[in-house]
Design a protein around this nucleic acid. Sequence first.
DNA 1: TTCACAGTGTGACTCAAGTCACCATCCTGG
DNA 2: CCAGGATGGTGACTTGAGTCACACTGTGAA
Lengths: 213, 213
Amino acid sequence: MHQNLIRQYLHATFPQFESGLIDTLTENASLKEFNEGDLLMNTGQYMRFTMLVVDGLVKLYREGEDGSEFFMYYIHPGGACALSMICSTKQQTSSIKASAVDKTTVLAVPTTLMDELMKTYRTWYYFVLETYRARFEELLVVIDHISFKAMDERLEFYLEKQHHDLNTRMLMLTHSQIANDLNSSREVVSRLLKKMEQQKKVILHRSYIEYLK
Amino acid sequence: MHQNLIRQYLHATFPQFESGLIDTLTENASLKEFNEGDLLMNTGQYMRFTMLVVDGLVKLYREGEDGSEFFMYYIHPGGACALSMICSTKQQTSSIKASAVDKTTVLAVPTTLMDELMKTYRTWYYFVLETYRARFEELLVVIDHISFKAMDERLEFYLEKQHHDLNTRMLMLTHSQIANDLNSSREVVSRLLKKMEQQKKVILHRSYIEYLK
DNA sequence: TTCACAGTGTGACTCAAGTCACCATCCTGG
DNA sequence: CCAGGATGGTGACTTGAGTCACACTGTGAA
């Protein structure tokens, strides 16, 4: 019953997986549900599972010592957290936080299975490497932005990313949320958004932003 | 002759590799020499080899559109560039630069060998994963610093890192080099260094810095 | 309806850091 | 020995962005 559901999810979300791999995962993994805002991973936590996102959306962010946050990237269905894979392999603690943006379903694959999967299933091995590569590239882009770009450009990039990743022009974000994600302050974001509105790049509403362009 | 040298390097620098792996690498890899300042990897370049550092020191940095640089981390003997591994697997172009700090010797392993190695040799597989994990963590630390810390703290961290990675208190760095690595300007670095000197954290000399503490 | 609060707008101020200008010192090649 | 480049010091100015204070406006619960 439960296993059928897992198999269904795997077929739908990871069509590239070979059938033996899907069998093994179906037998050994378990589904976990998270509600909006739930933490999937916290800093300093041991990873016993590698999480494959099969439904919903997960937000990855870094946390500063003072509790301030810093948005890094989203993980969509069909993706996995590179860190959860790496850390689980080494039984080490993670240093980033992950929370569910929507109601989210993940497939938890026990750490202990990793070695076997890597050795046995080529599609798994490719999947893991591609996940690393993709996350690494995303981190590099993040570094580019915070080191080479000014706030206005970062804000535009951020909105573009939200538009792209959430697939909507109606960005349900308050100015303070954005300020948090960019590790800036509400007033700064407000002012920059006003500028963008004058440039016809957005239309500002209460509690959401209409992304044009 | 040449092969004996490779085998010798592998034994010395990668003692954890199993003997079959060392055999395979000895047969298929080739040594490359780089002089101080030589580029091992440039942005937008296809990777046909995975580079294992066996001697010397390699500096990894990001380049902004305007040509400004940004130091990320060093790779010591016994390490490898995570990106060169990822990119080679996917035949994609890299987006960072790598240059030799000293005279440096690397072992170039053809891309085409990667799959086979990963499947066959457990120690290789662990090595690759550990490399990813370590670089990923380093990138996260970099992000922490540029997003949460001010220049003075970043400078101190930078000097500490130089001291640690190069294993000397005599840091052969000019103020402009440091400014480049931190994506700042010489004057700012000069002023902050002066402050650090007053705090007895360093002693400034012409063309080098004595790191105390 | 009213009230508290979340969300937003805006001016004034502060501060870190980048820029500009200029000078002093050292060091090296011709 | 001298010229010019590399290195470093410093004051004055500019600017982006964070902070503070306060005002305005929807909205939803009581």
